[in-house]
Design a protein around this nucleic acid. Structure first.
Lengths: 131, 131
DNA sequence: CTGCATCCTTTTCGATACTG
DNA sequence: CAGTATCGAAAAGGATGCAG
């Protein structure tokens, strides 16, 4: 019989992995933040989230919709109008982002300094003048 | 003169983008959580975080170290021993993860249900039996 | 306007081999 | 044990064209 490793909260099948991928996407959190302000049309989101392509926008929104985070409301009009908004579940998730946003505001500079310092230490130029 | 779009908090040069990439990585948050428990050796982390490769582990740790989130302590021994731990800055970040972890615990099932429901609606098999 | 499919480039990641 | 370098596979992402 196989002696399994002790099960741990970081196992490959841990649910957090999937959620992590869901909100860990490059754009998910950004869109989530944006939708906190209220329903938005596709084009509006695209203009707001600079640098996102239409493909990624649709893909990310679909993913969020699939997971019950956002709702897609399509109006049968011409020209077509589609509005995305947070579901109640999405709202509970979006509020968690607030402290994180604040953390970025509070500590961004510190991170930049740390990065610059690290880069300097690991640059060849600096190893001749350590005194 | 060019009429620029109104500046928004989602601009491409927003600092949150970098931080998002930093902690949005597939493994960053996992390692962050793990280190909350205290300093860990490289091999130990690798065994805990199932599925991570040595390359990704080193890479992620380096990134976190560079940004001042974790500390790398190397003991000059044979065989080599390296321990990683959270910096004070890293600790402030790691506590933000707690509500998120709780959210996953509380809402994971709901997400799964939503996904299953979405998939069912978008599967060809189900469009013949909508009644 | 919105969204999907296709092609193609860039990036990411894992496996392997090797150094200290 | 810890870390780096290299290679090739795989995935992500952007651009374009087309459909509803």
């Amino acid at each position: 019989m196989i002696k399994a490793d002790k099960p741990q909260p970081f196992s490959a099948n841990c649910p957090s992995r999937e959620i992590l991928e869901l909100i860990g996407g490059k754009w998910s959190l950004l869109i989530l933040c944006l939708l906190k302000a209220g329903p938005q049309r596709t084009g509006s989101i695209m203009r707001s989230v600079q640098g996102i392509s239409q493909k990624m926008l649709t893909q990310t929104l679909r993913d969020l919709e699939r997971s019950g985070i956002v709702t897609r409301k399509s109006y049968s009009e011409v020209p077509p109008r589609v509005e995305y908004s947070l579901t109640p579940l999405g709202e509970t998730l979006s509020v968690l982002v607030l402290p994180f946003e604040q953390w970025v505001v509070d500590n961004y500079e510190q991170v930049i300094v740390a990065q610059a310092r690290f880069d300097a230490l690991h640059t060849e130029d600096s190893k001749n003048q350590d005194a």
